Simulated scan of single mutants.
Amino acid sequence: MEVRSDISGVFAAFYAQREKRPDDIFLRYRDNSWTWAEAASQAHALACSFQDLGIEKGDRVAITMPNWPEFVLTVIAAAELGAVVVPLNPAYSARDLQFVLRNTEAALVVTAERYAGVEYLELFESLFSELPGLQYLVTVGDEDLWYDDRIFQFEDLVSAGRGHALIPPDIDPADPFAILFTAGTSTKYKGVVQSHESLVWTAMATASGLGMTESDRTLCNVPLFNIFGLGVALLTAIVTGSGLVLQESFDVIKTLELIAAEKPTVLHGVPTMFVMLLRDPAIDATDLSSLRAGLIAGAPVSPALAHEIRARIMPDLEIAYGLTETAPTVSMTSPKDGIERRSATVGRPLG
């Protein structure tokens, strides 16, 4: 694909694809699928409910959960509303959550009810008194729990928002869309603000470098709460109109099973993830022929590892360098590079 200059907002990019391919599959998770039209409908209903609660353009909407469909739908809803998403690592401690939510002045949190042994509903109820700016909690889960006028269930808000009209905000490409927290080289979390324009342009340029089209399907097992998952996996799928298969969190056997079952064409990861895949005996019995391209980033990549991934997993692996502060891709290799440059460098700057 070519980098376009006429689409600069996250929701504008999503809605353009919804208009082009309403009945194509956009999202897959376990045995469930969402077409572009279905995802747009649910996200719009959620945005309407958020607006009914008083959430406005510029308000912070935090998300703490693994790679679940509700994460993606919340991102789209926030984009339509002009809100700013604050993706949070579900492994954060109560102290970390309090720090991030206080510093971003988050008005609403969409959270798993429970995950990895943590009871988030109880955790956030205990934090309400410490976070005067936090107005609402929206929970994702299957249990029929008791709620009050500040706590709602995700599915209930989607149902309540159906048929409602949204007062559309005036969104400028330079408006902030996400605040992503990174420790970088220090031990203290720092919030990085990214605009609609920076995220969408970088996603378009990254997708172009990978040769992505609407016929691709990305297996997303990098976390959506960081820039690799949000910017490289989710947004490249949105700007190209391609499919996205969610894996709750990275697991070698589950990843191989999903590759065999879902036939993705694109797979991203950090070097450790690819090393774990290569070293698992199950890889030799798995059909990986659907995979064609993906990025490896986040840590140094040896030429030997790059060669092995291209030989055994996917032919068009590209090495990239990026930062949370740069949305994230700064440079990446290309199939046009020579063998040495493609395996021993991080390529050329995007642009």
Rank of each mutant, 00 (worst) to 15 (best):
L27V: 04
R28D: 00
Y29K: 06
Y29C: 07
W36F: 15
A37I: 01
A39L: 11
A40T: 05
H44V: 00
A47S: 15
S49I: 04
F50H: 04
F50N: 00
D52F: 00
D52Y: 02
G54A: 05
I55P: 00
I55N: 04
E56N: 14
K57F: 09
D59Q: 08
R60K: 15
V61S: 02
V61N: 02
A62H: 07
M65A: 13
M65T: 10
N67E: 10
W68S: 13
W68T: 09
P69L: 13
E70H: 08
F71G: 01
V72D: 01
V72C: 04
V75Q: 11
V75T: 12
G82T: 05
A83R: 07
V86K: 12
L88D: 08
P90A: 03
Y92M: 14
Y92K: 05
A94G: 07
D96T: 14
D96V: 14
L97M: 15
Q98V: 08
A106K: 11
A106L: 04
A107I: 11
L108A: 09
L108G: 00
V109Y: 03
V109F: 07
V110D: 03
V110E: 01
T111W: 04
T111K: 04
A112T: 03
E113V: 09
R114Q: 15
G117V: 09
Y120C: 00
L121P: 00
F124K: 04
E125P: 01
L127P: 04
S129E: 11
S129K: 12
L131T: 03
L131P: 02
L131N: 07
P132M: 07
